[in-house]
Amino acid sequence: MQLEIFQVDAFSAEPFGGNPAAVIPLQSWLPDDVLQRIAEENNLSETAYFVRNGETFDLRWFTPTVEVDLCGHATLASAYVLFEQLGEQAQVLRFNTRSGELRVSRNADGSLAMDFPAKQPVAVDILPGLLQALGLGQAQALYRSDDYVVVIDDALSLDTLKPDFVALSAFDVRGIAVTAAGRGFDFVTRWFGPRVGVNEDPVTGSAHTSLAPIWAERLGKNVLSCEQGGGRKGQLQCEVPGNGRVIISGRAALYMRGTVYI
Protein backbone atom coordinates (compact mmCIF):
# COMPACT_ATOMS: atom_id res chain seq x y z
CA MET A 1 0.00 0.00 0.00
CA GLN A 2 1.21 3.51 -0.84
CA LEU A 3 0.05 6.61 1.04
CA GLU A 4 0.79 10.21 0.18
CA ILE A 5 2.46 12.13 3.02
CA PHE A 6 3.12 15.83 3.53
CA GLN A 7 5.36 17.40 6.17
CA VAL A 8 4.27 20.93 6.98
CA ASP A 9 5.82 23.53 9.29
CA ALA A 10 2.80 25.05 11.01
CA PHE A 11 2.77 28.52 12.56
CA SER A 12 5.63 29.65 10.34
CA ALA A 13 5.69 31.46 7.01
CA GLU A 14 8.85 29.59 5.96
CA PRO A 15 10.31 26.09 6.39
CA PHE A 16 12.45 25.36 9.46
CA GLY A 17 10.23 27.38 11.78
CA GLY A 18 7.07 26.71 13.76
CA ASN A 19 6.02 23.14 14.50
CA PRO A 20 6.38 20.31 11.97
CA ALA A 21 3.47 17.92 11.46
CA ALA A 22 2.96 15.01 9.10
CA VAL A 23 -0.34 14.94 7.20
CA ILE A 24 -1.61 11.78 5.50
CA PRO A 25 -4.87 11.89 3.48
CA LEU A 26 -6.73 8.56 3.51
CA GLN A 27 -9.55 7.13 1.41
CA SER A 28 -10.75 5.11 4.44
CA TRP A 29 -9.47 4.44 7.92
CA LEU A 30 -6.62 2.01 8.49
CA PRO A 31 -6.44 -0.05 11.70
CA ASP A 32 -5.53 2.05 14.73
CA ASP A 33 -2.32 0.11 15.36
CA VAL A 34 -1.13 0.94 11.82
CA LEU A 35 -1.93 4.63 12.30
CA GLN A 36 0.04 4.58 15.55
CA ARG A 37 3.03 2.79 14.03
CA ILE A 38 3.21 5.28 11.16
CA ALA A 39 3.18 8.14 13.69
CA GLU A 40 5.92 6.42 15.66
CA GLU A 41 7.98 5.98 12.48
CA ASN A 42 7.48 9.65 11.53
CA ASN A 43 8.75 10.63 14.99
CA LEU A 44 7.14 14.07 14.85
CA SER A 45 5.08 15.52 17.67
CA GLU A 46 1.94 14.84 15.61
CA THR A 47 0.83 12.91 12.56
CA ALA A 48 -2.62 13.89 11.28
CA TYR A 49 -4.89 11.68 9.18
CA PHE A 50 -8.10 12.76 7.49
CA VAL A 51 -10.85 11.02 5.51
CA ARG A 52 -13.45 12.92 3.49
CA ASN A 53 -16.96 12.49 4.90
CA GLY A 54 -19.43 14.18 2.57
CA GLU A 55 -18.78 17.93 2.80
CA THR A 56 -16.64 17.51 5.93
CA PHE A 57 -13.48 15.65 6.90
CA ASP A 58 -12.94 13.21 9.76
CA LEU A 59 -9.63 14.16 11.39
CA ARG A 60 -7.45 12.32 13.92
CA TRP A 61 -4.06 13.11 15.48
CA PHE A 62 -1.36 10.78 16.81
CA THR A 63 1.85 11.51 18.70
CA PRO A 64 4.57 8.83 18.46
CA THR A 65 2.94 7.10 21.45
CA VAL A 66 -0.78 8.00 21.74
CA GLU A 67 -3.81 9.37 19.93
CA VAL A 68 -4.80 12.80 21.29
CA ASP A 69 -8.11 14.63 21.62
CA LEU A 70 -7.03 17.95 20.12
CA CYS A 71 -4.04 19.23 18.17
CA GLY A 72 -3.83 22.73 16.78
CA HIS A 73 -0.69 22.72 14.66
CA ALA A 74 -1.59 19.46 12.88
CA THR A 75 -5.08 20.85 12.18
CA LEU A 76 -3.50 23.94 10.66
CA ALA A 77 -1.16 21.68 8.65
CA SER A 78 -4.09 19.55 7.44
CA ALA A 79 -6.02 22.63 6.32
CA TYR A 80 -2.92 23.94 4.54
CA VAL A 81 -2.56 20.62 2.66
CA LEU A 82 -6.21 20.66 1.62
CA PHE A 83 -6.23 24.31 0.55
CA GLU A 84 -2.76 24.70 -0.95
CA GLN A 85 -1.70 21.21 -2.07
CA LEU A 86 -4.92 19.34 -2.89
CA GLY A 87 -6.92 22.25 -4.33
CA GLU A 88 -9.88 22.18 -1.94
CA GLN A 89 -12.28 24.92 -3.02
CA ALA A 90 -14.49 25.22 0.07
CA GLN A 91 -14.34 28.58 1.80
CA VAL A 92 -14.41 26.91 5.22
CA LEU A 93 -13.08 23.45 6.05
CA ARG A 94 -15.09 21.50 8.62
CA PHE A 95 -13.30 18.77 10.56
CA ASN A 96 -15.06 16.15 12.69
CA THR A 97 -12.82 15.32 15.66
CA ARG A 98 -12.79 13.95 19.19
CA SER A 99 -13.20 17.58 20.32
CA GLY A 100 -16.24 18.23 18.15
CA GLU A 101 -16.41 20.12 14.89
CA LEU A 102 -13.43 22.36 14.14
CA ARG A 103 -13.54 24.93 11.34
CA VAL A 104 -10.63 26.46 9.44
CA SER A 105 -10.92 29.38 7.02
CA ARG A 106 -8.55 31.64 5.10
CA ASN A 107 -7.82 35.13 6.37
CA ALA A 108 -7.40 38.04 3.96
CA ASP A 109 -3.66 38.11 4.69
CA GLY A 110 -3.25 34.48 3.63
CA SER A 111 -3.00 33.01 7.11
CA LEU A 112 -5.39 30.29 8.25
CA ALA A 113 -7.87 30.77 11.11
CA MET A 114 -8.93 27.84 13.28
CA ASP A 115 -12.16 28.06 15.28
CA PHE A 116 -11.65 25.98 18.43
CA PRO A 117 -13.65 25.52 21.64
CA ALA A 118 -12.20 27.64 24.45
CA LYS A 119 -11.06 26.03 27.68
CA GLN A 120 -11.77 27.65 31.02
CA PRO A 121 -8.67 27.03 33.17
CA VAL A 122 -9.16 26.98 36.93
CA ALA A 123 -6.67 28.63 39.27
CA VAL A 124 -5.14 26.07 41.65
CA ASP A 125 -2.45 26.06 44.32
CA ILE A 126 1.09 25.54 43.07
CA LEU A 127 1.86 21.85 43.41
CA PRO A 128 4.80 20.49 45.38
CA GLY A 129 7.67 19.64 43.08
CA LEU A 130 6.26 21.28 39.93
CA LEU A 131 8.45 24.39 39.92
CA GLN A 132 11.49 22.31 40.82
CA ALA A 133 10.78 19.94 37.90
CA LEU A 134 10.57 22.96 35.57
CA GLY A 135 13.74 24.55 36.94
CA LEU A 136 11.82 27.58 38.23
CA GLY A 137 12.29 29.37 41.52
CA GLN A 138 8.85 31.01 41.67
CA ALA A 139 5.64 31.61 39.72
CA GLN A 140 2.79 34.12 39.73
CA ALA A 141 -0.01 31.59 39.37
CA LEU A 142 -0.95 28.07 38.32
CA TYR A 143 -4.03 27.10 36.30
CA ARG A 144 -5.37 23.71 35.29
CA SER A 145 -7.31 22.63 32.20
CA ASP A 146 -6.01 19.86 29.91
CA ASP A 147 -2.59 21.21 30.89
CA TYR A 148 -1.07 22.94 33.85
CA VAL A 149 -0.39 26.57 32.93
CA VAL A 150 2.37 28.20 34.97
CA VAL A 151 2.43 32.02 34.75
CA ILE A 152 5.80 33.63 35.47
CA ASP A 153 7.09 37.23 35.60
CA ASP A 154 10.17 37.09 33.37
CA ALA A 155 9.66 36.25 29.71
CA LEU A 156 13.41 36.11 29.11
CA SER A 157 13.81 33.27 31.60
CA LEU A 158 11.77 31.00 29.31
CA ASP A 159 14.78 30.55 27.02
CA THR A 160 16.93 29.12 29.80
CA LEU A 161 14.44 26.58 31.16
CA LYS A 162 15.84 23.04 31.42
CA PRO A 163 13.02 20.87 32.77
CA ASP A 164 13.41 17.45 34.34
CA PHE A 165 11.17 15.53 31.93
CA VAL A 166 11.04 12.40 34.08
CA ALA A 167 9.78 14.47 37.01
CA LEU A 168 7.28 16.33 34.80
CA SER A 169 5.83 13.08 33.48
CA ALA A 170 4.58 12.27 36.99
CA PHE A 171 2.01 15.09 36.86
CA ASP A 172 -1.39 13.80 35.72
CA VAL A 173 -2.09 16.27 32.90
CA ARG A 174 -1.51 16.25 29.16
CA GLY A 175 1.32 18.79 29.42
CA ILE A 176 2.75 21.78 31.25
CA ALA A 177 2.81 25.28 29.71
CA VAL A 178 5.06 28.00 31.12
CA THR A 179 4.01 31.47 29.98
CA ALA A 180 4.80 35.14 30.50
CA ALA A 181 3.89 38.53 29.08
CA GLY A 182 6.36 40.45 26.96
CA ARG A 183 9.32 39.98 24.60
CA GLY A 184 7.55 41.82 21.79
CA PHE A 185 4.31 39.80 22.05
CA ASP A 186 1.28 39.91 24.31
CA PHE A 187 2.49 36.62 25.74
CA VAL A 188 5.10 33.94 25.09
CA THR A 189 5.08 30.28 26.06
CA ARG A 190 6.96 27.01 26.18
CA TRP A 191 5.05 23.71 26.41
CA PHE A 192 6.30 20.37 27.72
CA GLY A 193 4.46 17.06 27.28
CA PRO A 194 6.61 14.06 28.28
CA ARG A 195 3.49 12.23 29.45
CA VAL A 196 2.23 12.08 25.83
CA GLY A 197 5.63 11.36 24.31
CA VAL A 198 6.58 14.95 23.38
CA ASN A 199 9.20 16.41 25.71
CA GLU A 200 8.80 19.86 24.15
CA ASP A 201 6.40 20.97 21.45
CA PRO A 202 7.60 24.03 19.50
CA VAL A 203 4.10 25.47 18.97
CA THR A 204 1.01 23.93 20.56
CA GLY A 205 -2.13 25.38 19.02
CA SER A 206 -4.46 23.46 21.33
CA ALA A 207 -2.71 24.84 24.43
CA HIS A 208 -3.78 28.31 23.32
CA THR A 209 -7.42 27.38 23.88
CA SER A 210 -6.45 27.72 27.57
CA LEU A 211 -3.67 30.30 27.27
CA ALA A 212 -5.67 32.85 25.26
CA PRO A 213 -8.58 33.11 27.76
CA ILE A 214 -6.10 33.49 30.64
CA TRP A 215 -4.19 36.30 28.94
CA ALA A 216 -7.31 37.97 27.54
CA GLU A 217 -8.54 38.36 31.10
CA ARG A 218 -5.15 39.39 32.48
CA LEU A 219 -4.42 41.95 29.77
CA GLY A 220 -7.98 43.16 29.15
CA LYS A 221 -7.89 42.57 25.38
CA ASN A 222 -9.48 40.00 23.10
CA VAL A 223 -6.95 39.93 20.24
CA LEU A 224 -3.52 38.71 21.29
CA SER A 225 -0.17 38.25 19.56
CA CYS A 226 1.67 35.15 20.73
CA GLU A 227 4.92 33.29 20.29
CA GLN A 228 5.82 29.81 21.50
CA GLY A 229 9.00 27.79 21.54
CA GLY A 230 12.53 27.37 22.83
CA GLY A 231 15.25 26.90 20.22
CA ARG A 232 12.57 26.69 17.52
CA LYS A 233 9.72 29.20 17.64
CA GLY A 234 6.44 29.95 15.90
CA GLN A 235 3.96 32.81 15.92
CA LEU A 236 0.19 32.89 16.36
CA GLN A 237 -2.65 35.34 16.75
CA CYS A 238 -5.47 34.46 19.13
CA GLU A 239 -8.88 36.07 19.30
CA VAL A 240 -11.22 35.50 22.26
CA PRO A 241 -14.64 36.70 21.07
CA GLY A 242 -16.44 35.78 24.30
CA ASN A 243 -18.67 33.11 22.79
CA GLY A 244 -16.89 30.07 24.18
CA ARG A 245 -14.53 29.86 21.21
CA VAL A 246 -10.93 30.83 20.47
CA ILE A 247 -9.84 31.80 16.93
CA ILE A 248 -6.21 30.77 16.43
CA SER A 249 -4.53 32.08 13.27
CA GLY A 250 -1.17 31.30 11.74
CA ARG A 251 0.72 30.51 8.57
CA ALA A 252 2.20 27.24 7.29
CA ALA A 253 4.94 26.16 4.91
CA LEU A 254 5.44 22.91 3.01
CA TYR A 255 8.71 21.15 3.80
CA MET A 256 8.27 17.75 2.15
CA ARG A 257 5.85 15.72 0.03
CA GLY A 258 6.37 12.01 -0.51
CA THR A 259 5.07 8.45 -0.28
CA VAL A 260 4.71 6.01 2.59
CA TYR A 261 5.06 2.32 1.68
CA ILE A 262 3.42 -0.18 4.02
Rank of each mutant, 00 (worst) to 15 (best):
E227W: 04
P20F: 06
A74S: 13
A212Y: 01
R174F: 00
T65W: 10
V23F: 08
Q91W: 12
E67D: 04
A207F: 06
G87T: 07
Q36S: 10
N222W: 07
D164W: 10
I262W: 08
P20C: 13
E55N: 15
L76F: 02
E227S: 12
L219D: 01
P20M: 09
T97R: 02
L26G: 15
M114R: 01
M1G: 09
T56H: 01
P194W: 01
V92L: 11
D164Q: 13
S249G: 11
F11S: 04
S12F: 02
S99W: 04
S105T: 09
P213Y: 07
E84M: 09
S111M: 11
D201K: 01
A180D: 13
D115M: 04
V203A: 01
D154G: 12
L142D: 09
K233G: 09
F171Y: 08
A133N: 11
N222H: 14
L161G: 09
V81E: 01
V196K: 02
P202Y: 00
S169Y: 09
F62W: 08
P128L: 15
Q237T: 03
C226A: 11
A108I: 04
R183Q: 15
D186Q: 13
E101C: 05
R195M: 12
L35I: 13
P121V: 06
D201C: 03
N107S: 10
A212M: 07
P31Y: 15
N53A: 11
A253V: 04
D125Q: 14
S225Y: 13
L219H: 01
S78H: 10
A123S: 09
P31C: 10
G230I: 06
G231M: 09
E217H: 13
K119M: 13
A108V: 06
P128I: 14
A167Y: 05
E40K: 10
V68G: 01
S169L: 09
S145I: 07
I247W: 02
W215G: 00
S12D: 06
E227P: 03
S28T: 09
G234Y: 03
G100E: 14
A108D: 10
A123K: 08
G137Y: 10
A77P: 00
G110F: 13
I24K: 03
T160F: 14
G184N: 11
K233V: 13
R106N: 14
W29L: 12
R103H: 14
P117S: 08
A123V: 06
P25F: 08
I214N: 02
L59Y: 01
N19T: 08
D172N: 14
G72P: 00
F83R: 07
R218F: 07
A181L: 08
E101P: 02
L131S: 05
T97W: 03
R232I: 00
E84R: 08
P163S: 15
L30N: 11
K221A: 14
R232W: 00
D146M: 15
E67M: 05
S225N: 15
E217L: 12
T259S: 12
I176N: 13
N222Q: 14
L35N: 09
V188H: 07
F185P: 02
G100N: 11
L211R: 00
A216G: 10
Q91N: 15
R251V: 07
V23H: 05
C238F: 03
V203T: 00
S12E: 04
G242P: 10
G135S: 01
S169N: 12
P241I: 09
A21H: 00
D146H: 15
I262P: 05
T209Y: 05
T209Q: 06
R94F: 12
D147C: 14
M1R: 10
G242L: 10
Q2Y: 07
A118F: 00
